[in-house]
Amino acid sequence: MRKALFLLIFTIVTISCTEPYALQTNTFEDAIVIEATITNELKKQEIKISRTFRLEENEPQIESNAAVYITDDLGNQYNFNEADGKYISEFEFQAMPNRQYQLFVNTSNGKRYSSTREVLTTVSNLTSIEATVKNKFGVNGVDITANSFDPTGTSKYYRYEYEETYRFTVPFWSPDTLLINKYVTPELPIYFITSTRSGPSKTCFKTDKSSEIILENTTGYTEDRVNNNSVRFISQENFIIADRYSILVKQYVQSLSAYTFYKTLKDLSASGSILTPSQPGFVSGNITAVDNKNEKVIGFFDVSSVSEKRLFFNFDDLFPGEDKPEYFIDCEVLEFDISLSCDDHWNALCGLKARMSQQTIILYEDFAPIYNMVIPPCGDCRTIGSNVAPAFWQ
């Protein structure tokens, strides 16, 4: 949702434009951005609150020191505390059927916001997720699809998120690390020493979350059944599937109003250019300012049932006998011959020491006085992932 919200913010900033022009912030409208989804999972629920930001800024500003809470129609109140750029519920709780929930946000500058009352949607479980080799848009790859069925026919509107984890191995790994010797003397001119690396650094794991809005609805079908809805397509050349890959797919059942809000954001993000004669305008959700009904508030308070399933596969399972994808960056091996003086060769003793001090290269091969070096992502997987396998890994 974050990506789509950026485009919505972009729309607010450029709302008066009718012709393409060089991107710049001529006008800026500050607005609060609230991302709030609670589910029927028993867990600490999370809410994100930030502010709109200018085009030249990289990230939104987190709205700090707000009082955030949710109430239900039985008089229960669920308080949220600020932590790590989010607001996390003080205790674990889950949305229950036939109960009404309402979100309240009071900012540190005295502004108050509240949502409409929302109820939990129908529980409809994922029946399966599948990985199938396909050619889409002229690209060979893996299409990961979701399937579900609601015999009551009351779900109809679905949103999907995924969290993918992959195992990978760096292409130029050494069990040793090269260190600068701090005790060089004329009698013992040893400029570098090697040492065994601390901890595994050849094979790691990395987890990424989806950023796009993935929707499906069954209103045009004879039954409330989702068949092979594409959640993630991965090119056969993408290195994230070169070894072992796992994906956790979450299916949210949404209300019509929630689906409409997300569908509008999705259409906005797919429109190509917002600087066109047809401006989509401001997309309103179900959250408003209590004291100023004309204030623009971006976001939606969603109460959704959720179901999830996880899938694993190896590259060889789907592409037996085929070449594995290349590493995600080109890795060049740099040779440093420290027998040459700085005046004789650009990557001699002084160059090696400088780049090691900047931590921009690490050891690959030791043929002292020649050292073959690579940039850290090519030789130490911990620079881009974790060497600890996730608890769910198998």
Rank of each mutant, 00 (worst) to 15 (best):
D73Q: 08
D30E: 15
K48Q: 10
T37I: 12
E57R: 05
I32K: 00
E82P: 02
L55S: 15
D73A: 08
T39N: 08
K48V: 15
I34Q: 00
I70T: 01
L42F: 13
R51C: 05
I47F: 01
I70D: 01
K44I: 03
R51Y: 15
I38R: 01
K43D: 09
E63A: 15
A31I: 03
V68N: 02
P60G: 02
N76S: 13
K48P: 03
N76I: 10
D72C: 05
R54F: 07
I49W: 00
I70V: 07
T39D: 02
N40A: 06
R51F: 13
Y78E: 01
E35A: 12
S64K: 14
N79V: 05
I49D: 00
N40G: 04
A36P: 05
Q77M: 10
E82C: 04
E56K: 12
N79W: 03
N58T: 15
A36S: 13
R54A: 12
G75E: 11
E63N: 14
E35Y: 09
Q77K: 07
G75K: 08
E59M: 11
D30Q: 15
K43Q: 14
A66F: 00
P60F: 03
T37C: 10
N58V: 12
R54V: 08
E59C: 08
E63C: 14
F53P: 02
N79Q: 11
A67E: 11
Q45L: 06
E59Y: 12
G75M: 08
P60T: 11
L74D: 14
Q61P: 02
E56W: 11
E41L: 09
R51M: 09
E59S: 13
T37D: 03
L42S: 11
V33I: 11
